[in-house]
Structures are given as C-alpha cells and as structure tokens.
C-alpha cells in the first residue's frame, strides 16, 4: 500500500466522506464496465445516478456492498476498505441497506418475517424487539396492516415499500436504491417515491439509480451522469439540469425530458 492510500484508508476527522471510490475499474470478462471511477460521497448526501442502460450505473452502486467485485482501485465505505476479506464485507453490508428493482422480497416468508430476518440473524436482536422495530418501520411506509401477509399477495408498490422498510430495519448508515421504481405501474411509482423523499428529509445517506428526474430535481444534492462506464458529469441538480457542461449530458437530457 502506498503512503497516499494509507492516508486515505484512515479518514481524517474533518473529512466526512462516507463512500469513496479511488480509481475503480471493473471488467466483465473482456468488457471494461467501470473506467477510473474517482468519486466520493459525503455523509448525509443524496446522490442520484442516471445514464443510459449499460452505462455502469447499477454496477457502480452494487460495488458499494460487494454484490459486484471491482478488479482495480479502492473502495472505502465508512472507513472500511472493500476487499476479499469476508469480515470487511460483512461489516459493510450490515451498515448498507439495499433496495432492488424487482423488490427481491423472500416469497416464503411473511412481510413481518422478511423484515425481522436480518436483525435477528445478523444483528442478533431478540425476536420480540425485532418485531416491534419491524412494525415501527411498516407504520412508516404505511403498510403495517399487511404484516402477516405474504409478498405474493401485495401489489408492486406495496412490495417495494416493504423492501425499503426491510432495508431500514438493519438501521443502516447508507441506503442504496437500484432503479426502485422501474418495475412499477405508473400509479404506484408515487407511493414509493414519497417514502424515499421522507427518508431523504431525515438525513439518510442515499445513492439512488433512477430515471425519475423529478425525484432527482427535488431530492438530490448531486446528480451523477454516467455513460460507457465513466462518470461524465456530477453536479448539483440546478447546474445539472439547467446548465449541463457536457454534450453527452445535454443529449441525454434532451432525450428523456422532451419525449
């Protein structure tokens, strides 16, 4: 490890970055999917990642909790380096909640059991306490009356809200959202976005891959635009939408905003 990396591994107290990408590269076989990602996210920051499909936005997000491995560079989450060390991976995953495009609720467990599974087995929370906490988060996503149903009995929007509550039950410091509304009917998108906005207002660090530009405008601290595995532009929503610096960004915005 070089001196520079040593210094980065131990974050100085003044520096409040919670996620740091240092020259991260990733390949799927021969395909270079992430190219020199150099980016850091501050504590409490709300980041929206957008870009065309295949641009590497999901892959980048999934590197934060090691659902994808990077082959070069360094990723630090909450001061812990993400590498092959299983201890590090487990420590980071405890503190990072994730919401998927297809919800990925466990269909053989009730809603309540879906929520209490990780707190009971990973955090070793007593069952009763875990259930109380689960009910609390279900109240917050306005779905407490469905606690004893199975995921297959709920609508898509309800399932996604359950998935968000499931992530929150681990009391994470960071929440990752991987296209959380892309698989939903138009009428259900709003109920999910409302929950996410509420979460953002409470100061949760969020990284959200989404095509919901309205959400990006109102909630994001910074919008990151990716194409072909690179971060093309990262800026405040105001600058990003009204004054995009890059041709590629302008083209992307014109295509998604004027259809």
């Amino acid at each position: 490890m070089t001196d520079r990396n040593m210094a980065l591994a131990q974050l100085e107290p003044g520096e409040d970055a919670i996620i740091e990408f240092k020259d991260v590269n990733k390949w799927y076989g021969e395909f270079h999917v992430l190219k020199n990602i150099d980016f850091s996210i501050k504590k409490g920051e709300r980041i929206v990642v957008c870009g065309p499909s295949g641009s590497g936005k999901s892959t980048m997000t999934r590197c934060i909790n090691r659902l994808e491995e990077h082959q070069k560079g360094q990723i630090l989450v909450d001061g812990i380096e993400m590498n092959d060390n299983l201890k590090n991976i487990e420590a980071i995953r405890k503190d990072v909640g994730m919401v998927f495009q297809h919800f990925n609720l466990f269909p053989h467990l009730t809603i309540l059991e879906n929520l209490t599974l990780a707190p009971i087995w990973v955090r070793k929370t007593p069952k009763k306490e875990a259930e109380e906490m689960a009910m609390h988060y279900l109240e917050r996503v306005k779905i407490a009356n469905q606690a004893l149903k199975y995921p297959g009995q709920l609508s898509g929007g309800q399932q996604q809200r359950v998935a968000i509550a499931r992530g929150l039950c681990m009391k994470p410091r960071i929440m990752l959202f991987d296209e959380p509304t892309s698989a939903l009917d138009p009428e259900m998108i709003k109920e999910v976005l409302d929950v996410m906005i509420q979460l953002a207002d409470e100061g949760m660090t969020m990284v959200c891959v989404t095509h919901e530009m309205g959400f990006a405008k109102t909630v994001a601290d910074r919008v990151v635009f990716m194409d072909a595995g690179e971060i093309v532009e990262a800026n405040t929503p105001h600058e990003f939408f009204d004054n995009p610096q890059h041709d590629r960004t302008q083209l992307f915005l014109s295509q998604i905003l004027n259809h």
Partner: peptide, 15 residues
C-alpha cells in the same frame, strides 16, 4: 431460484 434472492440475502449481511 432467481439471482435476486441470493443478492438480497447477501446484501443484508447474512452468511
């Protein structure tokens, strides 16, 4: 079993 089930379990920190 869909890949998403494995991923969701991993992402929660289950061993």
């Amino acid at each position: 079993i869909p890949k998403g089930q494995y991923e969701a379990a991993d992402a929660m920190g289950l061993t």
